[in-house]
Design a binder for these strands. Sequence first.
DNA 1: TCGTCACATCGACGAATATCAATATTGACT
DNA 2: AGTCAATATTGATATTCGTCGATGTGACGA
Lengths: 113, 113
Amino acid sequence: MDVHEITPCCSPVLTEPLTEADAEELAAAFKVVADPVRLRLLSLIAQAGEICSCDLVAPIGKSQPTISHHMSVLADSGLVHREKRGKWAWYSVVPERLSVLRDALGGVPVARS
Amino acid sequence: MDVHEITPCCSPVLTEPLTEADAEELAAAFKVVADPVRLRLLSLIAQAGEICSCDLVAPIGKSQPTISHHMSVLADSGLVHREKRGKWAWYSVVPERLSVLRDALGGVPVARS
DNA sequence: TCGTCACATCGACGAATATCAATATTGACT
DNA sequence: AGTCAATATTGATATTCGTCGATGTGACGA
């Protein structure tokens, strides 16, 4: 339950036909990063390497429940890793998970004719 | 109006701090690909190289207005190019636009252990 | 000019979701 | 046990968005 399997998940969008199920799964993955607050959270976590939830509320400027909600979305998707230490929750990014999204957008560098 | 500028748009999420405005713009870009129908449309177009709108409705299994709506979203975002020939609309993907999204997800390749 | 075909737009509806106040839960410390 | 601090959950609300039927628009051919 802590870390999802880091499977390739889906075939690249541009090279292979996309089944309806694969499209659904990929779209769900992209939805996670299709939110400005979650992108800024990802950015903050990535630069800190590891950061406490308590240091995320103020920079973003949203309420604590809102930040908690977004962190759950990020953690459930496997994009970040959550580790509870005492009362605090520490987060770090899972770069392999980001690669899955990147690779889906056409693994190969732009083919030039 | 036909093709958006292919600027880098935003700084990579993981390496540089993300301003609120950049996050908003990036999130909007990801929202476009965060839909299963649009992903399948992209896949169909990419494999055909160039395809008529009339050949998109049946494979997706949605109504014609729905396909038209999604194609407008894709075209407005610059991910696809629309060219009208007579009564038909022909679409092709703009790979550079996909690269922008890919690069935003952390320029550097994942270190593999 | 009239009819038809391809596509776009409009209006409406339902589902998903971002947000916050209030409350619950959990851990640490005395 | 009791209290406080950090985080999670709940309930409610407003907004966004995907969808489709109906209609509009523009192009081609008889």
